[in-house]
Write a protein that binds this DNA or RNA. Structure first.
Lengths: 167, 167
DNA sequence: CTAAACTTTCAATAATTTTTGAAAGTTTGA
DNA sequence: TCAAACTTTCAAAAATTATTGAAAGTTTAG
């Protein structure tokens, strides 16, 4: 397999995986492309490599920047903007964990806490509801704490932890 | 807040969260409903509670069963089928982890291994590509191992591990 | 065996999400 | 200050995904 072919396969796979996890294909593909590009790419470069429109590229690059995993750079003497992704895979994982926690898990925890605090009126309905939503809260809270631990530690923490767990 | 209201809020929230993680709304909502219902529900019950069609209900119940987190039960002397969800939240998490690993992470690992094994032709392109896809492979592999560990341990493992990590 | 009770399937439709492309906006060099 | 170079916005179109509902299929009681 040649580099070009492999790159293409990787970008396709990454796009498909993203879709399964609620990330739009173009966004996942742009990210994949930048991740394996040794040099920053311009908007034109991205459009051309992925055959997507200017508008699409612009919007998705913006989202990636909002997620904190893609950065703008400039080349001296050039007006055009260039884009590059977070290259450190551990840092990438941390940033995604951080954002998913902040955007999705925290708000969910808030709701779970709220709804699990209703008064037990003695019915089977309310007993089961309280029990299950509390259990979900516990699980989500534990998972989130672990995630935050990943987020706040040095980049190798994940691997180290795993090794530790094997013992 | 009353039970009915809380239940509704929970089901809505769960549906929205599911959507963010690539799970269709009806599927997430049916699951939420069954999770907090003390007794198994019939298809009619689900249709009525969520205002969705028979076909939709049938298809999504089937998917939940495929994921191994919802089960068919029968009531003695009744022809109708009843459905109930996995009630143990830790077991639920394990089952979801197991399925996501099997369906999504394993295939991705396979591709990453494949594309990261291309020959280094000396170009910056191929060097960067190999380096990054290998790093992704390492990360995904570690994460998957941790996930599988969650999957194969007793249900309280997650909490215990967390406590251990605090030390 | 038959009909009622129930479930599944699937083509059509609806809803949602993504993508486009051109106009509007912004920045900068001269 | 102007105009070229570039980016962003956003309404419209396209693509994808979810939902419906009725017909077909299945099961079981009698």
């Amino acid at each position: 397999m040649k580099v070009t072919e492999a790159k293409d396969k990787f970008i396709q796979t990454w796009g498909a995986l993203g879709t399964l996890w609620g990330i739009n294909k173009a966004m996942a593909q742009i990210h994949a492309l930048l991740l394996v590009s040794p040099e920053p790419l311009s908007m034109e470069d991205v459009m051309e490599a992925l055959h997507i429109s200017r508008g699409n590229t612009s919007m998705n690059l913006r989202q990636l920047i909002d997620w904190g995993i893609v950065f703008k750079t400039s080349k001296a003497g050039e007006r055009k903007e260039y884009f590059t992704s977070e290259k450190d895979i551990n840092e990438l994982a941390r940033q995604i964990a951080r954002e998913r926690s902040r955007r999705e898990i925290q708000p969910t925890l808030k709701v779970l806490k709220e709804v699990s605090s209703i008064e037990d009126d003695g019915s089977a309905e309310s007993k089961e509801f309280i029990k299950q939503t509390k259990a979900l809260y516990e699980l989500a809270d534990t998972a989130d704490s672990i995630l935050n631990r990943v987020v706040n530690q040095e980049s190798n923490w994940l691997t180290k932890t795993f090794i530790k767990l094997l013992k």
